[in-house]
Design a protein around this nucleic acid. Sequence first.
DNA 1: ATATTTGCAAATAATTTGCAGTCGA
DNA 2: TCGACTGCAAATTATTTGCAAATAT
Lengths: 142, 142
Amino acid sequence: MFPIKTIKDLLEKKGIEASFQRLKIYQYLIREKNHPTVNMIFKALSREIPTLSKTTVYNNLKLFEEKEMVVALNFNDHEVRFDADTTVHGHFKCRRCEKIYDFKINSIDTDLKGYKIEEKEVYYTGICKDCLSEEKGTNLPN
Amino acid sequence: MFPIKTIKDLLEKKGIEASFQRLKIYQYLIREKNHPTVNMIFKALSREIPTLSKTTVYNNLKLFEEKEMVVALNFNDHEVRFDADTTVHGHFKCRRCEKIYDFKINSIDTDLKGYKIEEKEVYYTGICKDCLSEEKGTNLPN
DNA sequence: ATATTTGCAAATAATTTGCAGTCGA
DNA sequence: TCGACTGCAAATTATTTGCAAATAT
């Protein structure tokens, strides 16, 4: 689905070198779509790249952010998560299973006038579909 | 506008003691409405309360959060800001002057279905009205 | 008197920085 | 060969924890 070649082109189109580590980190983001933390990326890729350092993960995520290839998500907890989808969309975080779901935003009606808006971020928190149905399941003996 | 007495009642209504430091911290939040960081609160109140410690500021903000008297704002930068207005509303941060403005959200139209939403947070970033007009001012010789 | 709160100092965690060695066009 | 990239170790910053002293009911 996302062969190395494609990602390589993508990186080069952005004017950055396609080093092995960089390529793998970006590939991880677009493949997994799991909104990982620095640590999740580091741990997952360390298996393939045993010499990988966390600094490199930080370096590259920062670079991706500058190139607007990645956005950082800041929910109200002390971990930053990353998303390679930079189009405007909302993020829902389940406080039970900790998963983050993307959702589509059709419009936001506000009273803001005269401001130059450059970025929009929308975070929802709650319980996801799966956890809700599990909850129901445990309550009903059948 | 927010006399000590009123704030004292408010804290007690929430079931927490109205200690001097606690009262001052909460008063600062609702008076200034400036969405301060821990440091801003600490520095501002240190003048009046020279013995104040940052731990106490952290302790009380945490308590306020638990009691849902305060929400923490996480823009994509490494500082958390606090807001004593806990109703759902948006926050706009100017990347020029760093000020945070509140705005009203009438509605958000999304495709999210079947999820239990418990919290909504909306962050906009850009240039505020004031900074925009200054910008114009410097460009025009008149 | 007793429970809560405060505030210091130390611990922890996340991120950044400096820099020497490595890699690839 | 040269500049960019990596990765270690140390530094920095934000936040939390442990605990003894202070405070308030």
